[in-house]
Design a protein around this nucleic acid. Structure first.
Lengths: 109, 109
DNA sequence: CGGTATCCAGCGCGATACTG
DNA sequence: CAGTATCGCGCTGGATACCG
């Protein structure tokens, strides 16, 4: 986690990218911006992300205070993920990025 | 370049992050948003980025159409980098990210 | 000054298997 | 269902040296 570790040095753009720059974090955050989701639902929404990676990325987002994890003591177990208020503060930027990404893709050969 | 290569698949957030997610790209773009810069100037602005990495990241940004590279046939050689119009279209988002990054850092222990 | 070339470490990430 | 555990590969990026 070299990238995430150095959160305090460098400029703030780096800090932000360190938080959302993980392989799947952008998409995870995007889907969570549409509402609370269970682990299995996220898995289905990110078919090419392995279970292990999904877990890891969610844990990091949780540590960074963007995502809240709620475990329900049921059988079978249920775990729900949702954005924290701080996480939600990133959503507008994420949507801008998404829009920009669409324009970028339209330029491709 | 696994990340950059798959620009066409996945959601657009991924595409955008694939373009600006490189280790130094965010900062390079940020500095270039303040005006045209020579290679050596960028080096001084990113002291912890090696010359090799700076070159690589600039080349990728150039390929992605965000940065224009101009070589002046002088001695000693002079090379200037500036944002393309398309690159400039990313600047507002970058500034939002920067502002968000500052808030993020203020939350840190 | 503004680059290549070369070599190489580390870790990001995937694949697979097992568990409460 | 929602995870951990373990193993290993490949790419990212660092160090260093050389070039027009």
């Amino acid at each position: 986690m070299a990238r995430r570790a150095e959160g305090k040095s460098g400029c703030s753009v780096e800090s932000a990218l360190a938080v959302i720059g993980g392989r799947w974090k952008g998409v995870v955050l995007y889907w969570l911006s549409t509402g609370t989701l269970r682990f299995g639902e996220l898995r289905r929404l990110l078919p090419s992300c392995t279970q292990r990676m999904l877990t890891l990325q969610l844990r990091e987002l949780e540590q960074d205070g963007l995502v809240k994890r709620t475990v329900y003591a049921e059988v079978p177990p249920r775990v729900e993920y949702e954005l924290t208020p701080f996480g939600r503060s990133l959503v507008p930027i994420l949507l801008d990025l998404k829009a920009w990404g669409e324009r970028y893709r339209r330029r491709l050969p």
